[in-house]
Design a protein around this nucleic acid. Sequence first.
RNA 1: GGAGGAAUGGCAGAGCGGUUUAAUGCACCGGUCUUGAAAACCGACGUACUGAAAGGUACCGGGGGUUCGAAUCCCUCUUCCUCCGCCA
Length: 426
Amino acid sequence: MLLLHTLRTEKDRVLAGLAKRQVANAEATVDQIIALDDQRKALQTSTDSLLAERNNLSDKIGALMKAGKREEGNAMRDKVNAIKDEAAIGEEELKAVKAQLEEALLGLPNVPHQLVPAGVTEDDNELFKPFAGQLPTLPAGAKPHWELAEEYGIFDLELGVKTTGAGFPVFTGQGARLARGLVNYFLDRNTEAGYTEYQPPLLVNEASARATGQLPDKEGQMYHCTEDDFYLIPTAEVPLTNLYRDVILDESDFPIKLTGYTPCFRREAGSYGAHVRGLNRVHQFDKVEIVQFAHPDNSYAILDEMVAHVGDLLNELGLPFRILRLCGGDLGFTSAMTFDFEVWSAAQERWLEVSSVSCFETYQSNRLKLRYRAEKGTELAHTLNGSALALPRIIAALLENNQTEDGVILPKVLHHYLGMSKLVRK
RNA sequence: GGAGGAAUGGCAGAGCGGUUUAAUGCACCGGUCUUGAAAACCGACGUACUGAAAGGUACCGGGGGUUCGAAUCCCUCUUCCUCCGCCA
């Protein structure tokens, strides 16, 4: 959620940023929000002074009663009652205006960072770091991962349909082992890089989903357990970031680095077809997430650090990848800047997104009330997160890119985790 | 699932419906003393909104109510603890 202070003092920058995102009627919305806030202030002031008068008179009544001047005290009661009624009306209005204000603010996405390119669709994203090497060439008869999966017994989509429905793959045998190995490898590497490992809940309450911005923006994207009003997490970002909701840090606590493995659940009401075959898009998948909380002065240095870390992981896995800086139109609702990592899927001959690393500045911390003690008072911290890494497309790329006559060659870093150097046909 | 009890500042822990401006202790911070530290002493010590400031308002788990006035009384929800039952 954007800060009212920002809307007031940096309106031009906000409007320019929202324009980059193709937000319609941005100026009217901002003006309306400021008007609501003016209204809120006026109501707050008038109500407060009524309450002050009430408190004042109540004290006097107390004193009068004590002094035995019952008559005078009773007379004053009527006066206080009148003030009370008036104050109650003010409080009611204030509550309504505050609710309106909050809903309006929640409707505004984050302001993109200065360096975020203008653009409408993913085609306008900036190729921040192209792949420098040679893309792998596959032998004749190379297969896409969904065919390899069958041949090698990696995962079974039919079994998932039987147990649950489409988009819930069942990993089997050496495929399940590969998934587990990748999770362990990622967690170990993140821990080495200073991240503390957590196992958070996979269901969150509404307050958590709102604080990180999944609600109200992505209401339909999450699975909702209506009976208990819990949401299945679409990413570990939600529970991990919310661990620090309502927390006031000391500056010396920075940087705070968390990592966690969780399954992720996404309804992904959207397209079906060739682009979503196999593991390209599923309703449940595994992901290891990294989260950082930073001082505003160096959050972008930390974003660079996180990008470098994810790049290291992909290099160690030997996967060709490129880094995109998302344009305004493609940027997530809550993000100020996002880098997407895409690996080359050699059999499908296209790039697959495997990680998204973002800085949210104070957009999330404002709702989280995640602050630190500054020279004077408290300031909002910056929040960041990224995937390190999401499994399905990594598995797809490993299968496709490394397929040989003798099997699928595993990168060296995984040998230890799987107890084997290649996957074999069943 | 049943029966009881509890929820107060960073922590511990007081708080007959009206100087509560939430006692006290510990921790933290500043200072005095000291070569330095410890001890001792002095001081400061929550968050948010509002206001140029002085100040004002709200907040004692959440929500609602009674009252001129609520941390205190009532209702309700949530969470935790104890005991019993069931279960991995």
